[in-house]
Amino acid sequence: MTAAAASVLLVEDELPIRRFLRPAIDAAGWRLIEADTGQRGMLEASQVRPDVIILDLGLPDIDGIEVVRRMREWSAVPIIILSARGQENDKIAALDAGADDYVQKPFGVAELIARIRVALRHAAARVQPSADMTIVAGDIAIDLVRRTVTRSGASVHLTPLEYKLLTTLARNAGLVMTHRQLLREVWGAGHAEDSTYLRMFVRQLRQKLEDNPTQPKHLITEVGVGYRLVVER
């Protein structure tokens, strides 16, 4: 727990959702600020400077994607999207616009709290990079300094591109990364549409890193959206 309690801005027009999140966020020890419209949300964000924003995509006044886009013009605050099923394209658009993660409605409180934790930790790491340059996901350890990957202590041989893909996922550990984001970061802007290619690399990574590649524990597929490297479990 940090010295000053972290503040969470919840931009959501549905009162029942706000109502059930209030005690949960309170119980986690965070300060909750509520906004029921996109406009109000952006105003609160500029004044309160929250540590994380939970943003509903279906707002009455502004499109949630537009809120993300405007927010990203001046702030790097982690944004977690709340979206309904069937809004896959909106979800991807919001993530590509700069949102950090998403939670699908209806969701459990525990799931959202976990996501907020990941986002907060991720933001903290960005401000103050940890001295320890090793990322651990279960029995997988990625040493960013020596550029080596081990699984249960044994060294794993990765091609340079596989390594780059893995570290890109690891740097955003716990967060979802869209196909487009991964392709752009690993292969460059010209390859943002080659998702088949990406799938093949993830498959190879799974075969090298997972106990059972068809039932992965770390390299998780978010079908239709992207991939997520799960660190804690």
Partner: peptide
């Protein structure tokens, strides 16, 4: 689009995690 089947099976198994926890799953 072109998909490897194992990835789709993996995603389905991950999503159904709690539903399948009382069964053994072979792929």
């Amino acid at each position: 689009d072109w998909y490897p089947l194992d990835e789709l099976v993996g995603a389905a198994l991950t999503r159904l995690g709690s539903t399948l926890r009382r069964h053994r799953v072979n792929t």
